[in-house]
Design a binder for these strands. Structure first.
Lengths: 113, 113
DNA sequence: CTCGTGTATTAGTCAAGGCTAATATTGACC
DNA sequence: GGTCAATATTAGCCTTGACTAATACACGAG
């Protein structure tokens, strides 16, 4: 068995097992980047595991309806939110279970009294 | 006791208890935004709970030394990383325990085989 | 069909972030 | 002091992202 090149990579070897060929990093990074915006994070925390209409979100978050709609679009495009249309209204819920876990931990970490 | 206004805020009320007056949101958002960049997330996963030198990071991550240094600066300025200078080299470690938890969950969620 | 409500889309402007390349700093060794 | 290695900093350019304002679309009521 040929000896592996002994470089500074030694410390990173287990990383490359855990993290993979950058795919996981990219996916996680994309999800976090989508969550990281203050308004979007607020939206996600507001929704939680419920199903919330756009109007409720607009009222609770406090910015333009257009702005909210755009942020919802970002979250939807990232596969984070799912939208259901009922008559006039549109209801959003968190589609990605992983995001729910992240939200839960974020609350636990940053919102502990 | 005066009745609380029954508006669309109803669904958000527990949110405002959990999330607070936006302070927590801002803090969490800032931390996530700092973590969310692909290279920075890679750096954080690489460091984990160890103490790693800049050179090791540069070798493992694979970009310019300048670029790495700038990203390390961002993470340090956010209080996420702590740097220790030893002679010529600088070693970084994760300072914020909350970030370690986030990294752990991120790995668990996005890197499960 | 038209009107009002709820939501989405578009265009335009502005600020922020990331990368490169070059240069500066720091410390060890001779 | 001079030089090399490790790290940090700066300036400049370019891309991306966020907000506003206006407009468009969808749907139910009448």
């Amino acid at each position: 068995m040929p000896p592996r090149k002994a470089t500074a990579r030694a410390a990173g070897d287990d990383i490359f097992e855990l993290i993979g060929r950058g795919e996981n990093i990219r996916e996680a990074s994309a999800a976090m980047q989508a969550m990281a915006h203050p308004l979007r994070l607020k939206i996600l925390c507001l929704i939680g595991n419920q199903e919330v209409s756009v109007l409720e979100i607009v009222d609770a978050v406090g910015t333009t309806q257009s702005n909210i709609s755009q942020h919802l679009g970002v979250l939807r495009d990232h596969g984070i939110l799912h939208s259901r249309k009922e008559a006039n209204k549109v209801f959003y819920r968190v589609q990605d279970e992983r995001i729910l876990k992240m939200i839960a931990l974020t609350r636990e970490i940053f919102c502990s009294t």
